[in-house]
Amino acid sequence: MYSEKVLEHFRNPRNVGRIEDADGIGKVGNPICGDVMVMYLKIRDNRIEDAKFETFGCGAAIATSSMATELVKGKTIEEALQITNRAVAEALDGLPPHKMHCSVLAEEAIRAAIEDYRARGRKGE
């Protein structure tokens, strides 16, 4: 039911862990629903230098987290905010219909981490 790419990212997830001095942290999802994603961003001069994640969830949740961190790395904040759940899913060669919510979670995690960064008010520091 999963594409090779989903399985590959699930098997060897990129950017696992936390960034201790992260500039933005986004936590989305709910343990009751079985998916929680935490994204950590390191941002310098408006550009995402590093991204890491911790995820509690199914294969698709872990693969979309991994892909989302890959996609945001090196992007400006504005570019990162353009990343849609569909783009995350497409980068993984698609997700089964009932797993699309995992890609929504990934998009939300990116947005939440950037919002946190902005709220901290240290843009471009």
Binding site: F56, C58, H98
Partner: peptide, 29 residues
């Protein structure tokens, strides 16, 4: 601290077939 489907898939990678009652193995949440 972990979710059943991801356990199941990892066991499957090792050639071990089991089931999980987790939401993620079905289409409900």
């Amino acid at each position: 601290y972990v979710e059943g489907e991801s356990l199941l898939l990892n066991l499957d990678f090792e050639g071990i077939c089991v089931s999980s009652g987790s939401a993620c193995t079905s289409s409900s949440l």
